[in-house]
């Protein structure tokens, strides 16, 4: 088909050249939509969140409670990753919920879809834009917090060393063991796996929110349904085990809970973040498996979203 349109040069057009060919799938178009979404989100001043984040991390780093050096570092890590998680969820739901309904309301959608843009690419562009924004925000937060953690780690190591040296009867090996334990709670590559897990969860949350917004009538509806899915996604596994232990493997529990389990995503799996941050080593295979699962979620949700969106009339 595109052949036909390129050979149509019967009339001289304004620029003296014929219209362009439109490939049936174009990463370039998706990237254009994604970066435009990114610009939109950035210019909505979302990144001011980073200032709040920096203040929280620095404040927690200087909190003087009853901590050992390790505990202090752990608190900084937990607070930072907690804040990063919350940011990514809120952003994934709220920003995604806003995009489609707003494009529709402002009729910007007409102008985009009346260009040679397949609807799948439009959805992928929006998904990509939100994920790009989340990725950059997470990386910025990671950089900020790594800086704070690094400084606090150096302080903690120096303190621990001085403390042990003051008691002359510690061996060098003992001092090294202690310092290693402090350093274990400091800056490490493992923290990047935690960041990746947060990103993966945000990918799943963004894609189901986008799916909701393809049939939702407003942003508010999308946000409400999105939050409900988010909560149930964490809760249903527990509910299943609770019900089956309380009621036995009854038919009732099965009839009610099985569909819930099948329809809603299992978001609890992503809670690995807390233990990775706690210093639990994580195998690359586990990370790869989580990645595969998340990408599958995103792909399936986008496809179902496309199924609803493809013949939607405006």
């Amino acid at each position: 088909m595109s052949e036909t349109s390129t050979t149509h040069s019967g009339q001289p057009s304004a620029g003296g050249r014929g219209p362009l060919r439109a490939p049936s799938f174009s990463l370039g178009r998706i990237w254009t939509l994604a970066t435009s979404t990114f610009t939109q989100l950035v210019r909505m001043k979302t990144f001011y969140f980073l200032i709040v984040f920096a203040l929280v991390v620095v404040a927690v780093g200087n909190l003087d409670l009853l901590y050992t050096a390790e505990q202090k570092l752990r608190v900084i890590k937990n607070t930072a990753f907690g804040a990063m998680s919350v940011f990514s969820w809120l952003f994934a739901i709220a920003a995604t919920a806003m995009l489609l309904p707003r494009d529709l309301e402002d009729r910007t959608l007409y102008t985009i879809l009346s260009k040679p843009v397949p609807r799948l690419e439009y959805l992928l562009g929006k998904l990509g834009g939100v994920m790009l924004t989340i990725a950059i925000a997470l990386l910025a937060m990671q950089a900020l917090f790594t800086g704070v953690l690094w400084v606090q780690e150096k302080i903690a190591l120096a303190d621990a060393y001085a403390d042990m040296k003051a008691h002359s009867n510690f061996t060098e090996a003992e001092i090294q063991t202690r310092l290693r334990m402090v350093a274990e709670q400091g800056v490490s590559w493992g923290l990047l796996s935690a960041l990746w897990a947060i990103f993966l969860k945000a990918l799943v949350v963004t894609s189901f929110t986008l799916l909701i917004s393809t049939f939702a009538s407003s942003s508010l509806f999308t946000i409400i349904v999105g939050v409900i899915v988010f909560i149930i996604g964490h809760f249903h596994k527990m509910a299943v085990s609770y019900w089956s232990s309380a009621l036995g493997e009854g038919a009732l529990a099965k009839v009610f809970l099985k569909p819930v389990e099948l329809i809603f995503p299992d978001l609890r799996l992503f809670n690995i973040v807390e233990n990775i941050v706690g210093g639990q080593p994580v195998a690359l295979t586990a990370l790869a498996e989580m990645t595969g699962l998340s990408v599958l979620y995103a792909a399936v949700y986008t496809m179902i979203g496309l199924y609803l969106f493809i013949d939607k009339e405006f």
Partner: peptide, 22 residues
Amino acid sequence: RTGWEAGLDRRLTETGLLTPPP
């Protein structure tokens, strides 16, 4: 996916990456 997820859940719990639900 549920079969896959159940297995993954078990493996992650065994390796101490996932804390059982409260």
